[in-house]
Amino acid sequence: MIRLENIAKKYDLGGTNVSALDDISFTIEQGEFVAIMGPSGSGKSTLMNILGILDNASSGAYFLEGHNITSLPDKEQARIRNRHFGFIFQSFNLFPELSAIENVMLPMSYAGIGFAERKQRAAELLDRVELSHRMTHLPTMLSGGEQQRVAIARALSNQPNLILADEPTGNLPTDKGQEILDILTELHRSGTTIVMVTHNDAQGDMAQRVINIQDGLLHSEVRR
């Protein structure tokens, strides 16, 4: 499904080239659950940004379902992010001005889905994460766990091929974090590809494969 070939990312900091990623190559198959692990500053987030085409690699090639998407126009990148990827962030990143259901409906509006359909689909997704009773609540009225469940519903709104989760339990207590992991596990079982960045070894153990990044290099790749 995804193939990275010799991906490198360099930043120009005041005339000095800093390498954030170098020579990263791996593939992720459809339906896989992959954990990306590594210490702080190792390049995990940069790798996630490149995987989610929020950032472009300085060199190398990125293939999605056989298509080279390394360098695409903004509009096309936005379309791919919208239709193929679902993002889950550590700090939930819901819009506090929008209700739970409006947050879930937002990505579908960019996909051109009609209002009635996206409302119905958002309600179904919130029901799936057991938040049908909280649909009209603003994020500030929800607990952290509830907010992250809304974020998961939002990530699933356009039925993406790939869920990119960046430390999805990092801001949650253990029990609430487990609820989120259970949902992700359930999603994986239903065939969704999941790439999750985590510091937590136990969470890494849930994945089928762990990719370790250190100092911007692919340190190890372990299949469970």
């Binding site: 509009k75 936005a78 937002l106």
Partner: peptide, 16 residues
Amino acid sequence: RKQVGILMALGASRRH
């Protein structure tokens, strides 16, 4: 800026 980043992650283009 953060909001802009989230919107882009959700599929908003620069034009959006």
